[in-house]
């Protein structure tokens, strides 16, 4: 094996492109998370429905959503829908939707667990003062469930953040995509991908500490007068 000369200058030279890629990565993961929260809440709500059919449908979708590799999902949404049904999403949209479905399947379970953890007496009391179902969920159950589900939600977001690197296969110019094409020109994949790795560590740590602060804020609210 020959001696490898590290050339970290390459990062400096291509920093603007890499940063642009990073912004795309952040955008697509946030968009994906937004979808995931919507899907998750929707399917979790169906799981609590009094109609058996809805429970079963929602449960099946969640199971399938969790089992499908993101990679396959991306191909189905980006190429499959376009070929078969002439539904054309941009690469960014397809990526965000795929992330949303995968994340949503996990979020559905997280929401379900969080909601189940809230004592039945809370909704009894809410109903007893005349709140309807919607008000009870929105004002009583969800605000309490959020504290429980926050840590798991952060985990899922971190998962999506990393999952977001796969969207480069359908041509979304995220940070990995940029690292890839710059390394094709410069033959410096090691430096470029390592940089991406370090950026992801930094991202994950900042997300985690943000969540920690948020959690403290939320739990502090009920403890302090």
């Amino acid at each position: 094996m020959g001696k490898y000369d590290f050339s970290w200058r390459i990062i400096e030279e291509h920093l603007p492109e890499l940063m642009k890629g990073l912004i795309i990565t952040l955008q697509i993961s946030v968009a994906g998370m937004a979808f995931a929260l919507l899907f998750g809440l929707f399917f979790a709500t169906l799981r609590f429905s009094q109609y058996r059919v809805l429970n079963v449908i929602s449960n099946s979708i969640v199971q399938v959503g969790r089992s499908l590799p993101l990679f396959v999902l991306l191909f189905w949404i980006y190429y499959g829908l376009s070929l078969k049904f002439k539904i054309n999403f941009s690469d960014f949209q397809a990526g965000a939707i795929a992330l949303g479905i995968t994340g949503g399947a996990y979020m559905a379970e997280v929401f379900r667990g969080g909601i189940k953890a809230i004592d039945q007496g809370q909704s009894d009391a809410a109903f007893a003062i005349g709140l309807n179902r919607m008000q009870t969920s929105r004002l009583i159950v969800l605000p309490q469930a959020i504290r429980i589900i926050l840590p798991q939600t952060v985990n899922i977001y971190v998962g999506l953040l990393k999952g977001a690197t796969i969207v480069s296969v359908i041509g979304v110019s995220d940070m990995i995509y940029v690292a890839q094409y710059v390394s094709l020109e410069t033959f410096r994949p090691f430096e470029l991908y390592s940089f991406a790795g370090v950026v992801f560590i930094a991202l994950t740590l900042s997300v985690a500490s943000f969540a920690w602060l948020l959690e403290r804020q939320l739990s502090g609210k009920s403890r302090r007068g």
């Binding site: 004592d119 007496g121 809370q122 009894d124 009391a125 809410a126 007893a128 009583i140 605000p143 309490q144 609210k221 009920s222």
Partner: peptide
């Protein structure tokens, strides 16, 4: 009006 054994006040 209803009052419960376990109070069921809203903790948040």
């Amino acid at each position: 009006g209803m009052v419960f054994q376990h109070f069921n006040v809203f903790p948040h």
